[in-house]
């Protein structure tokens, strides 16, 4: 009993801290009142308002597109980098490479955003590309730091990968490229998928870097939310948060259902 309490108390405090704000948002997204703090009655009017908010919907569409593109680019880069770090042993410049891959994980966003913007401006001056800034530059910027996250996830999976599985496949007659596609890739696929999802979410969530490298006419969802919040809280933002929480929860349930199928037999 005491053991259970020792486990439950810190978890209770921690999860209350993490989830109370979210629960309040979910609750008040169904509030009839315009006031965001007093509950007057159940209503779904803020969901309707959200649906009718064209600027927000457009921004959401743009953000989803940028997130999908940048997450895919990040996955290609990050998977290669993760394999290189986990499997290529010591190659020249490995430390520098590992450093360059790890740095975006912790680099303050204002620095990353500013430096990328200046880079794009310098490139435009020198080569005329990218001409102006917008969704493309945001996607490139997001792919850069997304790749770092994908590389970390893939590298971690490969670090505890039992290499005798690959040896066994080779021993049974599979050539190296076949070993990769039949054994290594299927077994790292969950990590790669998780990496993609992580890069996707980070892109969808990023305000600072996007604000720097985006251009006129390309306002992402966080940029629109940010300017709305600065003008004052409205319950339609809570409705949006509730939808996102619901989406993530459903996604996680599906993901865990795929990742941990019930055992047969």
């Amino acid at each position: 009993m005491r053991r259970a309490a020792r486990l439950a108390v810190p978890l209770g405090i921690g999860f209350a801290f993490l989830y109370l704000p979210i629960l309040l948002m979910v609750l008040f997204s169904f509030n009839d009142s315009r006031l965001v703090t007093t509950f007057t009655g159940f209503s779904t009017r803020w969901y309707v308002a959200l649906w009718e908010n064209e600027a927000l919907m457009q921004a959401a569409g743009l953000s989803l597109r940028i997130a999908a593109v940048s997450a895919t680019m990040a996955t290609v880069l990050g998977v290669i980098a993760g394999f290189a770090l986990a499997r290529m042993g010591r190659f020249r410049g490995r430390t520098a490479f590992a450093g360059a891959m790890a740095a975006p994980l912790v680099m303050p966003e204002v620095i990353t955003g500013l430096s990328l913007l200046l880079m794009f401006v310098a490139m435009e001056q020198a080569f005329g590309f990218p001409a102006g800034r917008g969704a493309d530059t945001v996607a490139i910027a997001h792919a850069t730091f997304g790749a770092a996250y994908v590389a970390v996830v893939v590298q971690a999976r490969l670090a505890d990968f039992d290499t005798s599985l690959e040896e066994a496949a080779m021993d049974l007659g599979a050539r190296p490229w076949k070993v990769f596609f039949l054994i290594t890739l299927p077994l790292t696929a969950p990590a790669i998928a998780a990496g993609w999802l992580l890069a996707f979410t980070l892109s969808l969530d990023d305000l600072v870097i996007a604000s720097f490298v985006s251009g006129p006419g390309a306002s992402t969802l966080p940029m629109v939310i940010f300017s709305a919040v600065r003008l004052g809280l409205t319950p339609d933002l809570y409705a949006l948060a509730t939808l996102l929480v619901g989406l993530v929860a459903v996604g996680l349930v599906i993901a865990s259902w795929i990742a941990w199928p019930r055992r047969r037999g």
Binding site: D162, S164, L165, E167, A168, M170, D171, L172, G173, A174, R175, P176
Partner: peptide, 15 residues
């Protein structure tokens, strides 16, 4: 190479 040898192996971890 291992994949062309007429030799197979039972691994310690079974793999």
């Amino acid at each position: 190479p291992p994949y062309e040898r007429p030799i197979n192996m039972m691994f310690q971890s079974y793999a």
